[in-house]
């Protein structure tokens, strides 16, 4: 279970998150929707431990572990995974080497045996097949020269191999055509089960047609303003944020209709 309590954060003194309260019980998938600048990506970076943000208040617990006290790699070992909105290119780092190093680092931290090259390759090939990815993806440098869709699929591939217990997907649907969207959604759905939870951050209802969320939250001005079932996403799709009484142009703390 992920519990976010009163989380406030900013960058260089400018507040972005203004007291987020959110609980995702184990086994559930929740969606966060919200206008640009509402703090969605900031939330995902802070959960993963990006050092560019200052946490000014609140706490985050994953199954009783104080996430904010951990380094990024310790959070990954604790079972957290962030699928990046903008996956980073690593020239000179082969994808297979990257994936195997990450998997073995996480396994080591969890007290599990490391995989040798043969065992890893078997596992990676199976994951590639499930995601309809070509095997030469392993030989290429991480994300270098990848199309937008390939980058997002590579994120899901990493997730499939690392098998986190909690995944944050930051606009994983952006830049995907409908076929790629289905593959990515399939990758997430394959992990769904009583021991996996996820926070799916998206602009659009489209992704939620393929990954049905248990709950939908609306983030604006750095706060959760509405929460509801999957129907809330449809309501947004029909009437936009204005229909919910949210000023979609509001930035930071200045939203007019909060509360």
């Amino acid at each position: 279970m992920l519990e976010i309590r009163g989380l406030s954060a900013g960058i260089e003194g400018k507040p972005i998150l203004n007291g987020i309260d959110l609980t995702v019980p184990t086994g559930e998938v929740h969606a966060i929707m919200g206008p640009n600048g509402s703090g969605k990506s900031t939330l995902s970076y802070i959960l993963a431990g990006h050092e560019g943000y200052d946490v000014t208040g609140g706490e985050v617990w994953l199954d009783g572990v104080d996430l904010l006290a951990l380094a990024p790699e310790e959070r990954a070992a604790a079972g957290l995974f962030l699928a990046f909105q903008y996956p980073v290119e690593l020239p000179g780092v082969g994808n297979a080497n990257f994936l195997r190093t990450a998997l073995n680092a996480v396994r080591r931290a969890r007290g599990e045996a490391e995989l040798d090259a043969v065992q890893f390759l078997k596992l990676a090939r199976a994951a590639l097949r499930d995601l309809a990815m070509a095997e030469d993806m392993l030989k290429r440098n991480v994300n270098v020269g990848f199309s937008g869709g390939e980058k997002k699929r590579n994120e899901v591939l990493q997730m499939a191999i690392l098998k986190p217990k909690f995944a944050v997907l930051d606009e994983t649907d952006s830049g995907l055509d409908i076929d790629a969207l289905k593959i990515v959604a399939g990758g997430v759905n394959a992990l769904r089960g009583p021991h996996f939870s996820a926070l799916v951050i998206t602009h659009y209802q489209r992704l939620l047609d393929h990954i049905t969320p248990d709950r939908v939250h609306v983030l604006a001005g750095g706060r959760i303003l509405r929460s509801g079932g999957p129907e809330l996403a449809h309501e947004l799709e029909r009437g936009g944020y204005a229909a919910l009484g949210i000023d979609a142009t509001a930035q930071g703390v200045s939203e007019a209709n909060a509360a």
Binding site: E73, L82, L90, Q158
Partner: peptide, 29 residues
């Protein structure tokens, strides 16, 4: 690059190993 470092660490790779991977990558070419 701090973003490359963060990406590697977010995948569970400890800082020292991540630095080493990026330095090796720098020399790889």
């Amino acid at each position: 690059d701090p973003e490359q470092m963060f990406y590697l660490r977010a995948r569970g790779i400890p800082g020292d190993l991540a630095r080493r991977m990026l330095i090796r990558a720098f020399l790889a070419e």
